[in-house]
Design a protein around this nucleic acid. Structure first.
Lengths: 232, 232
DNA sequence: CGAATAATTGAGGCCTATCAAACCGCGTGG
DNA sequence: CCACGCGGTTTGATAGGCCTCAATTATTCG
């Protein structure tokens, strides 16, 4: 998976991977922001003046079409970077899915600091892999495979290449909590809310999962779920 | 669009955007590679030891599922970076669509060089925007919108936000050459080869395009095409 | 406890995939 | 020169998966 070996170093701490870099950034002490759940951090089209590092919580990035269709393009968790922009403006909106804590950097500050740029590069490489994986999901997977892939991602040590299949010990049942509504999941997976719901019901019917509550899922057969993702 | 303001600086030239960075990379003179059309530069799963910058030509990155389904995740052109990896191995394969010239860097070389990292970060930010755009295409657009979006990308100054619509002067007819086969286009757009073909035929029928040859398209009505992309 | 919101379920239709066949351009060789 | 074969493309018929619209049920919260 994408976020395996990213050490959870924060920008503020100024740790550097690889060879030491003599140049030290001027004002590396990032401002810290906190936001409640369902708070929009910035909108698509806003002037891209800041770059954010997610210290805690979950953030989603999404894009809209003029007619209202929405695509959630990234789900970010601890340690990931967002607010990077190729041009002048943000290409997507950023909204919190949980309460979050952010490290905020001015864009110019990042441009000027080799340490920050290095850190950003590292993070972006990992995030790019997740985007590739997600392109595969959106372009080539069935609804069942998409939902299974989505769920398995929340089971630690599962869903990746290293997933050794049924022989592994990690096939135990597992509980997980959904931080996204059906609508948000649908917009992430390129499906409709109804299809997501139907697939979840089908998974229940097959005995792969059990719903404790709408947002609490007990995965009875982790391996069964894994085999539905299309990657085995 | 993603690749508007990327200056076409190459890594080897050692130019730095933003504030000057005192630290100079040790061996910034990249090795140069050339490859023919349809040559695989690396495979998904290979040890990720090198990072590439595309100096000339076109490269595609793709992922495969065990059952053979393929998703082309990126189409790269001049100035773009690939071969970046979050982990030990490449998450996708890289194949040339035309003859190409590459600047090749050892991964450790990049890790050690602030200048290179900075350059990589810049490029990745732009490429990430393209991936977001593509996620929208794959998740939310119809076949017609996908093909129209694909074609309009090859018309300079079109398809982006700044596309001012029919009032603009740039509505002239335009010729373009496809570097991808129908199969590659289909795998990029998350469609089948038949659907791509049918949509192209439909565009012919509507008088939006004309096929000079299978890989040469004359866009009769650029604005008409633009309006079919879903972004207007 | 009841209203508002979110999720599920059902019926039907559309869009795209699938399977199959025809077509086209092009190089080869009789 | 033209038949031939080959790979890629187009077109057709059909089926199926997911979307749409609508109604019902569950959940949340005042």
């Amino acid at each position: 998976m994408a976020y395996l070996d990213r050490t959870s170093e924060t920008i503020g701490q100024q740790r550097v991977t690889g060879r030491a870099v003599r140049e030290v950034a001027k004002t590396p002490t990032a401002r810290v922001q906190r936001h409640e759940q369902h708070h929009v951090i910035f909108y698509e089209g806003d002037q891209a003046e800041r770059i954010f590092e997610l210290q805690d919580g979950i953030v989603m990035l999404y894009k809209l079409l003029p007619d209202g269709r929405r695509q959630v393009v990234e789900i970010l968790n601890r340690g990931m970077i967002f607010g990077t922009a190729g041009g002048e403006r943000y290409d997507c909106s950023a909204e919190t899915l949980t309460p979050v804590r952010l490290a905020v950097h001015d864009r110019r500050e990042v441009d000027a600091s080799a340490v920050l740029q290095s850190h950003v590069a590292k993070c972006l490489m990992s995030q790019m892999e997740r985007l590739h994986e997600h392109a595969m999901l959106l372009g080539r997977k069935s609804a069942m495979e998409r939902v299974a892939s989505y769920l398995i991602r929340m089971v630690p040590n599962r869903g990746g290449e290293g997933c050794t299949g049924p022989l592994s010990e990690t096939c135990d049942p597992h509980d997980l909590v959904l931080t996204m509504t059906r609508q948000e999941i649908a917009d992430y997976l390129g499906l409709t809310i109804e299809t997501v719901s139907r697939v979840i019901s089908e998974l229940k019917r097959r005995g792969v999962i059990r719903l404790e509550r709408q947002d609490r899922i007990h995965v009875t057969r982790v391996c069964g779920l894994c085999q539905l993702t299309g990657i085995h």
